[in-house]
């Protein structure tokens, strides 16, 4: 099958995770993974981002497929149910807004900048080596730490389900995928 430029987006995804290890401010670039899929679904009414450009999905496909790190078993029924998918989206939203709230507190000076990356919403990893100061407000860095936590957490969840089930199992419950499909459903109707 003919390869396209967008078939190499997994390199961008991998580079993103690596860059955040050296300078946390690169985490801001991850917003593109939020806005581009939403824009495509809202404007074009397709899941073009998932279908073509999602580097994270490609990375899981590569590691689980060609590298062979996946057991390639069926995902449990409950994990593909609408209840779980929408529930996970809601949970993701709540945690995301909590992260935005923490950023806000740093912006208004109520809280100090915490140079940690929170994994799986629980484990706080010191990450101070990736912070070299900012030209802007410390809140800008706080958002970067928070956003990188979201991205790393979802990568870890995706890697776990990649190993246990099929390579791109993450796509089944990816909050962005669920959200863009929901937008397409509303926009295009359920004909």
């Amino acid at each position: 099958m003919k390869k396209h430029w967008y078939d190499y987006m997994w390199i961008v995804s991998l580079a993103y995770l690596i860059l955040g290890f050296f300078n946390i401010l690169f985490a801001w670039l991850g917003l593109l993974c939020f806005f581009i899929p939403l824009l495509i679904s809202a404007v074009k009414g397709t899941k073009g981002y998932c279908n073509r450009y999602c580097g994270r999905g490609q990375l899981f496909g590569l590691l689980g497929g060609r590298v062979g790190l996946s057991r390639k078993r069926d995902i449990p029924k409950w994990m593909k149910s609408r209840g779980f998918r929408y529930g996970f989206l809601a949970f993701f939203f709540v945690m995301f807004f909590q992260m935005l709230w923490n950023t806000y507190l740093v912006f208004v000076g109520t809280a100090d900048l915490k140079q940690v990356v929170t994994l799986l919403w629980t484990f706080k990893l010191p990450w101070q080596w990736a912070y070299h100061g900012t030209l802007f407000h410390p809140g800008v860095a706080q958002f970067a730490f928070g956003f990188y936590s979201v991205m790393l957490t979802s990568t870890i969840l995706g890697l776990i389900t990649m190993v246990l089930f099929k390579p791109r199992s993450w796509c089944v419950y990816c909050p962005m995928g669920t959200m863009t499909q929901m937008i397409c459903r509303v926009r295009n109707g359920r004909k």
Binding site: M1, G45, T46, K47, N51, G57, C184
Partner: peptide
Amino acid sequence: DMCVACGCCVKVCPMEAIEIWRGI
């Protein structure tokens, strides 16, 4: 009803027989 419209099937189909219909 259960399809998540991820498009993994589209990529592997040798006959180009699958499409993701309206992102649904």
